[in-house]
Write a protein that binds this DNA or RNA. Structure first.
Lengths: 304, 304
DNA sequence: CTGTTAGCGCTTTCAG
DNA sequence: CTGAAAGCGCTAACAG
């Protein structure tokens, strides 16, 4: 082919808006430059923040991201995992359910790069990026105790399954209380479904000796708590101090501004994405099965 | 191949966790069962609500969604469009920029199914799904006038480019004021960058004859307004009434609860997705170039 | 260095 | 009805 022929072809290519067929390339090269992300529940602020961070990292490297929302349903999760595998994604970041332990083990055996965020699965050695939950609870309790509270309640969402953040935050809460010489009382600690939070709260706060401070385990719980507080016209922090995990969009403009234990969600997402990309590029170059814990940040505002 | 051979193979297939290679299938069938979505700015509540609705519709039909955030940058938008075309997506939903008019025209010529959300481009005849913005502004003005206000200010974000919602909402505001016999004053109407909103607000509210009510054009504007109001300790609605477009997550728990013009974002996303899917299945079966306007809902709360 | 060719894994077509 | 073969558009390997 002559030089001028080539030039003409390139001209036509430009004019016709020709695009390389990446599907064909992917088939040949056995990589799609696409990763899959499966979040447990897209309604959490944390999920959206992590997703955004992952997308930012990936877009810089021209990697596509397909996001799926498992909606806290292991069956959906499995369906998405298999669909993404069938789509030949180069790697997977998930907020895993222990119900799919076998599937995850198989993925590991196949060598598909895999990273966990927010949750762990026992016996599945995957690099995992999540909050230091026990420490986060400790920070909360410590702050409240410093503010003079002894009767501290904790409330959070529950799923029937044992989910890492919930378990660890409650455990951390109990440990922290004990460390401060306070015996945690079970009727001050509630892990219930979102729809029952307000009911449990009403029970807890109308008990004989109600807590003077409340620790909300995540943002969805916080919304319910604030809703209840508004309904009952409870004065924060005078009648009840409030602290929560997850930095919601309105924490600095709410009245009162909300004292918050913020998760470094962007950082978690970034590092998870970087780890996955490294593993995709050269699997042998990265250690597997490490757990990366991120410290929470206490943002002192006016609700405590 | 004998029956038992087939059975054995299917057994092994199951055991090995074999997955059809959808990349190969896509190459052969010339469809990927994937659509692309490009939002102008992921930070808007509206964008995330639309995305979620699109994903819900698509997941039900086993269609994948790749979401891209153009970050209000036409160059990024173009890059994503071309990348998604190269990936052979079956269709595209975008919040378009008029800077890419030529590219969109080419896409139309190629016959790639395309749907617009939130914005229009002149001379590009694509099915478009968006709020009836003029009516939304009318609802806001009408409500405030009914509450006894005459001096009404409007503030919203601006981009240097003329973006459909901003233009239409401001036009609608002016028209509505006139219809109520009020001459809209330019110094009460501001379209500025997010970072300058608080400054403009301070100018507007400290003027000789400040407005008694304020209309915030979208959620990002609202956040700035609330931030300013908190800082200056302005009493809502006693000193200033406040209404805004976009139903933010905390509107019902804020103090005061926020009177809001809600966009039917889920409905917009759903219908956009359904239209795109119909067009993908049989392009000739759908009319092109229609503009579908959605009515806003006034949710009366306590900020007005 | 340029140009041809085989083959990625699937589906579709065609022959047996 | 079953089974073989061609070909989707690309890239990597190889031949000239």
């Amino acid at each position: 082919m002559g030089i001028d022929t080539r030039e003409k072809i390139e001209e036509v290519i430009e004019k016709l808006g020709y695009q390389t067929n990446l599907v064909a390339r992917s088939l040949k090269q056995k990589r799609t430059s696409t990763i899959g992300v499966i979040v447990a529940n897209i309604l959490h602020t944390f999920s959206t923040q992590v997703i955004r961070a992952i997308e930012d990292v990936c877009n810089e490297q021209n990697i596509n991201v397909i996001v799926c929302n498992a909606d806290d349903d292991p069956v959906k999760e499995k369906k998405y995992i298999n669909m993404l595998r069938a789509k030949q994604v180069d790697g997977l970041i998930t907020f895993p359910t222990d119900k799919n332990e076998k599937l995850y083990k198989q993925i590991l055996k196949e060598g598909l790069p895999l990273v966990f965020v927010d949750r762990l699965i026992k016996d599945v050695l995957v690099n995992s990026f999540l909050l230091d939950n026990e420490n986060a609870s400790y920070i909360a309790v410590n702050h409240l105790v410093e503010k003079g509270h002894q009767k501290i309640g904790m409330i959070t969402t529950s799923l029937l399954r044992s989910v890492t953040p919930r378990v660890e935050r409650i455990e951390g809460f109990k440990t922290a209380m004990k460390r401060h010489g306070i015996t945690p009382q079970d009727n001050y600690i509630k892990g219930v479904e979102v729809t029952h939070i307000q009911f449990e709260l009403s029970k807890m706060l109308s008990s004989e000796d109600p807590p003077t401070a409340l620790f909300a385990g995540n943002d969805l719980t916080l919304m319910e708590v604030l809703s209840y507080i508004k309904k009952k016209n409870i004065k924060i922090p005078d009648e009840l101090s409030l602290i929560n995990i997850d930095d919601v969009s309105f924490s600095h403009i709410y009245d009162p501004t909300l004292t918050t234990i913020a998760q470094p969600a962007s950082e978690i997402g970034q590092e998870a994405a970087n780890m996955l990309i490294k593993e995709i590029k050269d699997s042998s170059s990265v250690e597997k099965g490490n757990i990366y814990r991120f410290k929470a940040n206490l943002i002192k505002r006016s609700s405590t």
